[in-house]
Nucleic acid binder design. Structure first.
Length: 728
DNA sequence: CGTGGTTTACATTAG
DNA sequence: GTAAACCACG
């Protein structure tokens, strides 16, 4: 396909700074890739002189692959990656200048919170007032803004002062243990570059072009980093869309777009407003929703792909019904010759994926989940990684604490406390403290044997590390540590799943290709495990439905999109309701969601949803109500429709009902057969009494129907025998 | 003192 | 629904 005039302008722009305001589906990635190809091919700029940064590993991978395809060459060493990934690369190269150990390890948010919890306890603070999570968010927020503890103003109030104190302690411990958290990767890189003129000028003469994707999502420190990298003769191209800014919660500043125009003046600005992705109705809906936000840069997307299908809205009885409905639609499409991987289910929060997964499993629909519980963050995997970390570095107290008694080996809280206290007293690491305690025989006999056993285990595993390759080491570690036996003995299917995952880890090690030849493979692997969530578990080529959160869907597109859980308090999420900014960010998220769809979009919501173990009644999301009625068709699976779906005693009827357009009612669809009642109908059973129909399965007289009876029981009944009477 | 079973608090989004 | 916190037992 040809590039349009604006796209060409962006691709072939002369030297200088460039801001591309690119709406959803306007060919942003393509422009970025074409631009890079143009620079290399036509301007004969070396790949080593390009620096391209994005936000997700997925996006980075895509840019690299598309570029390699366009230029027909491999570009392994080119600086294309996420901010965190590139910062990591920088620090691995310049660890000395950055005042880090060569062995530094990455601390993920879980590790970070554990560490803070320990510090909070050590300082004997009220743990109800100082929650690890909140403290972590304070520290991360500071780092996002480039603030070190010493930059912060103390003496305001006890709470703030304590937070700053915690930050100081935390930072000290990270430095002692060679640990670097996500925020630190960025901040440390920035500071190193800032304080080292030599390094700076090295990179100024190296990188001739900086390209930044999703510019609206950059936070202060990322922006500052880019500014530092942009030398006097460097061209910066920033590509972004203020309407797709969805990361304010982690410090992203939409204002950076305006700042860019000022700080980098003169900047030529190009707008890409033609959408090549979605049909008109979908685009109109997206435009209508986003127009409710104030202070937009202003941009109206248009398309010439034709009106397309209506947007469908399905009011599900509950989340099970919603999942079943989606599953039906997914396979219907495949029955008509479509592919699973052209379809995606998008949701607001990861917790929603479970029910969907179950429904897909039942319907034998292949699927692939992105994000959520990351592979490398699973309990059993984390444990295994911690063994590897301790093998790599005995200074790593975080790893030490985590596995000293996992699997249980007779080292309890008391013993660990003794180790801790010696470490604190002598200013040494837990590992060293353990060794001293053993040597001094300062521990009770049983504990001493146990700790000695642990120390010897790690040392012996380390011996293997020298002579074995990574997968063999991983195998030995999970076997000899007892992790396989321990997790395998967990009850139910869980045990087996955990063992499978541990085996999967060995496979991941086997498939691991280190980027950096001169550093230790183990170290590289551990770093990658922290930075890259490990999404390569499933076969990427398999034809599977894609499941992911709205956040991770950004930058992607699908022929058919199912946007589920469109309920107030879920989407927009209740946590975001207390501020205008929060709500507007949710709306941008809705905009992102809608604009992922190329041809077909179904939005669904559940009138009842079991969340956190409680049944909650959902009202249709305000974002759906912001879509003009004439773009939406309400889907009814039942032939009989005039039934209140919530039980009468619960009062308020969901807003979706009031929203009903008269002509929707004539639109009938029969996924299920006509039994005189449908999902949500009230029925009477001779023995069990009255209840509400939850779902159907099968067809003909063999059809099974699931009914929730008023006594609280839920039963599957065979239609043929149940003799259910619809209640009018 | 350490372990296993049981209760209770707690819940976005992500590198 | 999960993981930390708690408590009784060996």
């Amino acid at each position: 396909m040809q590039l349009n005039p604006q796209q060409i302008k962006a691709v072939k722009a002369a030297k200088g700074h460039l801001l591309v305001i690119a709406g959803a589906g306007s060919g942003k990635t393509r422009v970025l890739v074409e631009r890079m190809a143009y620079l290399m091919r036509d301007k004969e700029i070396s790949p080593a002189a390009l620096f391209a940064v994005t936000f997700t590993n997925k996006a980075a991978r895509e840019i690299r692959e598309r570029l390699e395809q366009t230029l027909d060459r491999t570009l392994n060493t080119m600086w294309v990656g996420t901010f965190h990934g590139l910062a990591h690369r920088f620090l691995r190269t310049h660890w000395r200048d950055a005042d880090l150990s060569e062995q530094f390890m990455i601390l993920d948010s879980d590790d970070q919170q554990r560490m803070l919890k320990r510090i909070i306890n050590e300082l004997q603070l009220d743990d109800a007032k100082f929650k690890p999570r909140a403290v972590a968010s304070f520290i991360n927020g500071c780092k996002d803004e480039g603030q070190r503890p010493q930059n912060l103003q103390t003496g305001q109030d006890y709470y703030t002062d304590t937070l700053i104190n915690l930050y100081t302690h935390y930072e000290q411990q990270c430095q002692d243990q060679n640990l670097v958290d996500f925020g630190e990767l960025l901040l440390r890189t920035f500071e190193t570059l800032k304080e080292n003129a030599e390094l700076r000028s090295h990179y100024h003469s190296r990188f001739r072009n900086l390209l930044i994707d999703e510019f609206q999502d950059t936070n202060s420190i990322q922006y500052a980093w880019i500014r530092l990298l942009a030398g006097p003769d460097v061209s910066v191209m920033a590509v972004g869309d203020d309407d797709q800014s969805i990361y304010a919660w982690r410090g992203a500043k939409i204002e950076n777009i305006h700042r860019f125009e000022r700080d980098f003046a003169p900047v030529s600005t190009i707008r890409l407003e033609q959408n090549y992705r979605s049909t008109d109705k979908i685009l109109k809906a997206a435009n209508a929703v986003i127009s409710n936000n104030a202070d937009r840069l202003g941009k109206e997307l248009w398309t010439d792909l034709g009106a397309g299908e209506s947007i469908y809205l399905y009011a599900a009885y509950n989340e099970q019904d919603e999942a079943r409905f989606v599953a039906n639609r997914l396979s219907q499409y495949v029955d008509q010759g479509g592919l699973y991987n052209e379809q995606a289910i998008l949701y607001r929060s990861n917790a929603q994926s479970r029910v969907l997964e179950e429904a897909l499993l039942r319907a034998a629909i292949p699927y692939r989940i992105y994000g959520g519980q990351r592979f490398y963050e699973r309990l059993e995997i984390k444990n295994a990684l911690m063994y590897l970390r301790l093998i790599q570095s005995r200074l790593d107290d975080t790893a030490f604490e985590r596995i000293i008694n996992v699997p249980p080996r007779g080292i309890g809280e008391r013993t660990v406390e003794q180790i801790r206290s010696l470490a604190r007293q002598d200013g040494i690491r837990l590992w060293e403290a353990s060794n001293r305690l053993i040597a001094q025989s300062a521990l009770p006999g049983r504990a001493k044997t146990a700790v000695k056993g642990f120390v010897e285990l790690i040392d012996s595993l380390d011996q293997h590390a020298v002579e074995m390759d990574l997968p063999a080491l991983a195998r030995i570690v999970i076997d000899q540590s007892g992790l396989v036996a321990y997790h395998g003995s967990e009850k139910g299917e869980r045990g087996q799943a955990r063992v499978d995952n541990l085996n999967e880890l060995v496979s991941a090690c086997r498939g691991f290709e280190p980027e950096n030849e001169d550093s230790s493979v183990l170290l590289e692997f551990l770093s990658q495990a922290s930075l890259d969530a490990g999404e390569q578990q499933a076969d990427p080529d398999a034809d599977a439905v894609q499941l992911m959160t709205l956040h991770s869907a950004k930058g992607l597109e699908f022929k058919r999109v199912f946007l589920v859980g469109a309920e107030e308090e879920l989407f927009p999420h209740r946590m975001s309701l207390d501020s205008v900014g929060g709500l507007e960010e949710e709306r941008r998220l809705a905009y992102v969601g809608i604009t992922r769809a190329m041809e077909y979009l179904t939005i669904s919501y559940a009138e009842t949803r079991r969340l956190n173990g409680r049944d909650q009644f959902g009202l249709l999301s305000r974002f759906v109500k912001e879509i003009p009625n004439d773009l939406i068709e309400e889907v009814r699976l039942e032939t009989q429709i005039n039934r209140p779906l919530s039980s009468p005693s619960l009062g308020a009827r969901p807003l979706g009902r009031q929203h009903k357009h008269p002509r929707f009612q004539s639109w009938e669809h029969s996924d299920s057969e006509d039994f005189g009642f449908g999902i949500g109908s009230r029925v009477d059973h001779g023995t069990f009494g009255e209840g509400t129909v939850l779902s159907f399965e099968g067809s003909g007289p063999q059809t099974k129907v699931q009914v929730s009876f008023d006594d609280g029981s839920v039963k599957w009944l065979v239609m043929q025998y149940a003799k259910l009477v619809p209640l009018g």
